[in-house]
Amino acid sequence: MRFVRVYQPQSDFLEVVSAEDAKTRFAPLHSARLSLLLTQKAIGSGVGARTSGEELLEANQLLEPLRVAVRKNMNANRQP
């Protein structure tokens, strides 16, 4: 498990590598859920919440939301 911060869209993730299939998936933390407008699948997430396989996202599921958030932040910085 590894902590990943993507600065431009202000999003934090936990990178999780499965022991079963060696696939890398990502658990979006609160900042990523807010910034990328991701829906929360778990009831009662927060301190002590566990992440199930359904809550983990593949990298390709995150690319478009990350692009949108980066574009939005870049446009906000260009306007005087």
Rank of each mutant, 00 (worst) to 15 (best):
E54T: 11
M74G: 10
S35N: 05
G53Y: 12
E20N: 03
L66E: 04
E54R: 15
V4P: 04
A49H: 06
L38A: 00
E64P: 10
L63T: 14
L36I: 09
F26P: 05
G53A: 13
L37C: 14
F26H: 02
F26K: 01
F26S: 02
N60A: 12
E58Q: 15
N73C: 11
Q40S: 15
E55I: 09
V68S: 08
E64A: 13
D21M: 03
L34E: 11
V68H: 08
L37E: 13
L56I: 05
Q40C: 13
R78V: 09
E20F: 01
A69V: 14
L38S: 04
I43L: 06
P80V: 03
R50V: 09
E20R: 04
A76Q: 11
V4E: 09
F26E: 01
S18I: 00
Q79E: 06
G48F: 04
S31N: 03
T24A: 12
R33E: 11
F26T: 00
V70Q: 12
L57A: 13
E54G: 14
P9G: 03
D12M: 01
S35F: 00
T51V: 15
N73E: 14
E58W: 15
S45T: 10
T51Q: 10
A27L: 11
N75F: 07
L56M: 04
V68W: 08
E15W: 00
A19R: 02
M74P: 04
S52P: 07
L29N: 01
R25T: 09
Q10F: 06
I43Q: 10
Q10M: 02
A76V: 06
E58D: 15
Y7P: 04
T24L: 08
T39I: 10
S18H: 02
V47H: 10
R2P: 01
R78P: 07
S35K: 05
K72V: 08
S31F: 03
A19F: 03
F3N: 11
A59L: 14
Q79V: 08
S35W: 08
V16A: 00
E64K: 13
D21K: 04
F26D: 02
V68N: 07
L57S: 08
L37G: 12
V6S: 01
R78S: 13
S35L: 04
S52C: 12
G44N: 08
E58N: 15
Y7I: 02
R78W: 06
N75A: 12
L63D: 03
T24Y: 06
L57M: 14
S35M: 09
A27Q: 05
P9F: 02
G46D: 07
A27E: 04
A22M: 06
P65H: 01
F13T: 01
S11Y: 00
D12T: 00
V68Q: 09
V6M: 05
G44F: 06
L37R: 13
L57Q: 15
D21W: 02
D21N: 00
